[in-house]
Design a protein around this nucleic acid. Structure first.
Lengths: 236, 236
DNA sequence: CGTATTATTGACTCCATTCAAAGATAGTGG
DNA sequence: CCACTATCTTTGAATGGAGTCAATAATACG
């Protein structure tokens, strides 16, 4: 009973600490109020549990509230390919837009809570709230840009890919109020490899090389970045 | 004067031979009539001319009427990366959805004619024609799927990438009423390399290998596919 | 017909993968 | 609390696929 009340309060986007990052970012106060009425707070997941699986029916656009997730596709050889990493305030589910079936799976990388803008309401809501439609288009556009950027980046040498990945994480953590120079990788070496198109050994060796060069300090999943400009130089 | 009349007639989607492939595919007859009123027929382009350039303001969603185009991003080293190839009836421009600026350039690969659904009308039209909004979402979803598929495929060996590329072209030509076993590549070896993340020499060698294996016959840009199932086996 | 672009082919090189083994960490249950 | 196991990470050595360099050939174009 109390839990339900708390949920009702927390799910209001205007009370959410992520309102400057998440869907509300591009919406007016009134518009946020209206989408708040249909946004559903979903149950918390543990590492390894899925937000949705490839082939699932599209149920709605999701927003990470806390924790991180990976967006993956499995190939015919049983290898996992990580298309993207999702941080709090980021949206996912757009891969379900075509054919109303998801073409990717979304898996929690750690304890994760999230919200859902149900598919049923999405269309009606877009008609009533033009700002929402614009935001949906903008977000899909950003996803497209991310993917094409990824296609380009994956052709570069291991050193550049990893440098770009670290800086990208750093900047995204920073925008969420975390430190940009010290954070924990939400991924294993294997997963970083899957994301960057490298063998896990290559990731390990490359991290060590950055450390030997004094650019970073690696301690298992903990990363300290000492020289952001130098790291950026490697791929810019 | 006469030209203008012809244009007015041709631009009506219901009279267009591509109406089963292009935007009209997912729309009712009435809906097609309504979008026809705002669709603009654009002037014909020659090889190398651009439909839009990276950084350009988003002006609308485009549809290829005849000819082919490439969607590219240039990296910091002046290398061109081909994100996608566009055939008649296919839509492009979605990379302009975020920030109202294009993040890619679209360049004609041969003489090309195309239509435009202007950005100004897009939003109002989506509000009036729910089917159009659904179609826009579906198309962006398909673009996302294509890109993530590309990310996965680009990690595979050269042989698989090229086989998949040839079969993909074959099937898309087929859907447009062309032969699936004989067609002209709209790309140079260099461009195929740029698309598949390979050196042009690798493309050339790999094509020769397929030919030596009796899978295809290559004659400059002309390709004859002799054994589609075997070619598919290489990557499935 | 000459020039520029595009394609083929060979030889060499190198970056990243693969294979292999050892070391470290976290989680589990006795 | 510690042993035990599974998972993850590091490091080395060898291999190989594709890139680079270079020269030639073929084609398209003005």
């Amino acid at each position: 009973m109390i839990d339900k009340l708390i949920d009702d309060i927390q799910v209001r986007c205007s009370n959410c600490s992520l309102d400057t990052l998440c869907l509300p970012r591009g919406l007016s106060e009134r518009e946020v109020e209206r989408i708040s009425e249909v946004i559903k707070r979903k149950k918390t997941l543990q590492r390894g549990e899925s937000l949705y699986r490839e082939g699932d029916a599209f149920k709605g656009i999701l927003a990470i509230k806390s924790g991180t997730a990976k967006l993956i596709r499995d190939d015919q050889h049983g290898n996992e390919h990580i298309i993207n990493i999702l941080l709090p305030g980021e949206l996912l589910g757009f891969d379900g837009f075509s054919g109303n079936r998801h073409s990717c799976s979304a898996i929690a990388l750690e304890t994760l809570s999230y919200c859902e803008l149900p598919a049923d309401d999405l269309e009606t809501l877009c008609l009533k709230i033009p700002g929402l439609m614009r935001e949906m288009f903008r977000h899909t556009g950003e996803k497209l840009n991310h993917d094409s950027q990824q296609i380009v980046r994956n052709k570069r040498p291991a050193e550049e890919r990893l440098a770009a990945f670290l800086i990208n994480l750093s900047e995204r953590f920073h925008r969420r109020g975390f430190s940009s120079i010290e954070f924990n990788l939400p991924l294993t070496r294997q997963e970083m490899g899957n994301h960057l198109g490298l063998a896990l050994e290559t990731v390990s060796r490359q991290l060590k090389k950055f450390q030997d060069q004094g650019l970073i300090t690696v301690n298992h999943k903990n990363i300290q970045i000492h020289d952001i400009p130098q790291l950026k130089k490697l791929y810019l």
